[in-house]
Design a binder for these strands. Structure first.
Lengths: 339, 339
DNA sequence: TGAATGATGTGAACCGGTTCACATCATCAG
DNA sequence: CTGATGATGTGAACCGGTTCACATCATTCA
């Protein structure tokens, strides 16, 4: 039905009375007089011409495909993946999304299979940022990693999260409220906004006079509920729980409910990653939010910035914003004994 | 670092002592003796050869790009988009994800821009399934739509949701519990699992002796809370709310809380789309779940099935499964007056 | 035996751009 | 006025496959 044949470069060249080569250069503004360029552009415009991305890809050697690889189980990352794909689309790039489901093996596998697909860029939300397989990706394929720098690939750029700030702010907030014993629930896999957070938390906590008990937890709500429950049964259970991820925090709510603890009365809960639902649960979750759009733009920008822009190995740091809501308060019994 | 040049078809041909043409045919099992095919395959295997998707695309005329277009605001669709992209990857297809943010104008715009991108398939989660612009997509581009059939493009396949069943089951459930007046909150835009649901609900409700009040609501939690609140202030407020989407249901929880209504005591709430958080909220949300993987597979299958598979205009219907949890119960005061 | 048939393989064109090496011409310095 | 320089434009090769039209050869049937 859509009658008109797609115009080709040759058509434009003919109309302009130029060679294919000259036309190609002119359209891209690489060569030719200003006048010629304008004329060619005008004709292209009139013809509704746009270069076939595939032919261009074949000739130029880049595919226009970017892979988004990593752990995409949780809602936050899932949203990020969609936003990334969108942002790439704006640059006329298509995306290949591969969730590796938290498994380094699958991550390695996916990376290998990507080689065949001729992607010319990878945005990673790495499951295992210290794995050596990252170095096996052909060096002309740029990698931008989000959340953690890839140790095996120092020349790749990364978008990092200012965990020190986040953890510091969180602990300070709890300390100010009068808490003395805080539980920290970190995702079991080392990848999350806040990986070295466990270590940080210990030392920062010390300096504030806080006892920080670290425990790891699955990212799923149910798994987190169990992990939280374990932390809450001890004789000297913490009066606050800092959860590195809202899903974990939701699990903590559930655990608290199951154990008959009121939030925030008996237990303060602090989340991370401000999900759409953080303000839905009752009490509304105090958490940290990110400027996701800025993160996405930074990642895509790093990937598409011209080759030599000297940002090799560059790192950008994003700082979470503290969002005080209702799930944290002063502890009812400063040093809660068992219940 | 990754030394070895990528092998080309010519390399394989040379090694096999055949022409490029014969090799190409053999590799795809289209021509040549069984013996030759096996030999060529073995060599390709040994060389670690895989055809360059770009060259293939240029020559064969299909790009290997599929666009996922539509309304992707809510978590359910966002998850679906990621799953779709994954499933496409398994077929060696890359994806272009475009969220049109609920706007038919943007939808039209995106579809037009897609023409330039040479996608060879579209998976639509249409904002406006009855819009005429769907017909403007080049007819050789296959479209599979999810949720609603595209009226302007009868030859395209669709994956539909059995709304009649869902709504019927929901209303029956509420009727059985003794409710007489039910509020229905449907997303404001006509696209959702359950678009003609409003109409259905009226007629089905009638036959069960239920009064169904229909109202539309934004998909965001906050917007839904407002919409729900409006439904709940009347003198003869409904004793149950059926929300077409869990996000809306969560909004309803919030509204109920704000109004001092207990759930399910004063108000039963029924959701749709079983999100991960449905079992987190308190009380746990009674809702309907989908077999998302089956839906995704069906859509991708329809898109990639060979041309002539006679499924043109085919429709597949998926039935939601009712998940009884704790947010619905018999009404405390069968015909609740105002509060 | 000879013609029709079908299976196997081949060279070359083609998809639609990009890029290289070179030709042409105007400009400018010496 | 001459030769070097740089800007503009050109033909052809190339990217790596697919596919068409045709050549070869072995079968099969009359």
């Amino acid at each position: 039905m859509t009658g008109a044949q797609r115009k080709t470069l040759q058509d434009i060249a003919d109309a302009a009375g130029l060679s294919k080569a000259a036309t190609s250069y002119a359209l891209r503004g690489l060569r030719g007089s200003e006048a010629t360029q304008a004329r060619v552009r005008a004709i292209a415009e009139e013809f509704g011409y746009s270069a076939d991305p595939i032919a261009r890809a074949l000739a130029s050697g880049r595919s226009g495909n970017v892979a988004i690889v990593g752990s995409l189980r949780d809602l936050w990352r899932q949203g990020l993946a969609v936003m990334l794909s969108e942002a790439l689309r704006a640059q006329e790039l298509s995306s290949i999304i591969a969730d590796v489901d938290g498994s380094p093996q699958r991550e390695e596998e996916v990376l290998r299979s990507l080689a065949a697909q001729r992607v010319d860029g990878v945005i990673a939300l790495p499951v295992d940022p210290s794995a050596s397989y990252w170095a096996d990706v052909p060096s002309q394929t740029r990698i931008v990693s989000i959340g953690d720098a890839l140790t095996a690939r120092p020349e790749s750029e990364s978008v990092l999260f200012d965990n020190e700030y986040g953890v510091g702010t969180a602990l300070q907030h709890l300390a100010d409220l009068g808490h003395r014993s805080v539980g920290l629930l970190a995702p079991s896999l080392p990848s999350t906004p806040g990986r070295p957070a466990e270590l940080l938390a210990q030392s920062l906590g010390d300096s504030m006079g806080l006892t920080v008990t670290v425990s790891s937890s699955p990212s799923s709500v149910h798994g987190a509920a169990q992990a939280a429950a374990q932390l809450l049964v001890g004789d000297r259970r913490p009066t606050a729980l800092f959860c590195l991820g809202d899903s974990i925090a939701f699990g903590a709510y559930r655990a608290a409910r199951d154990l008959g603890l009121s939030v925030p009365g008996d237990l303060s809960i602090l989340g991370f990653d401000d999900s759409e639902l953080a303000s839905l649960v009752s009490p509304e979750l105090t958490t940290f939010g990110w400027d996701e759009q800025a993160i996405v733009d930074a990642a895509v920008g790093a990937l598409t910035s011209p080759e030599g822009t000297g940002t090799a190995g560059g790192q950008m740091m994003f700082r979470p914003v503290f969002i005080a809501r209702a799930s944290t308060t002063r502890p009812s019994r400063p040093n809660a004994p068992s219940r």
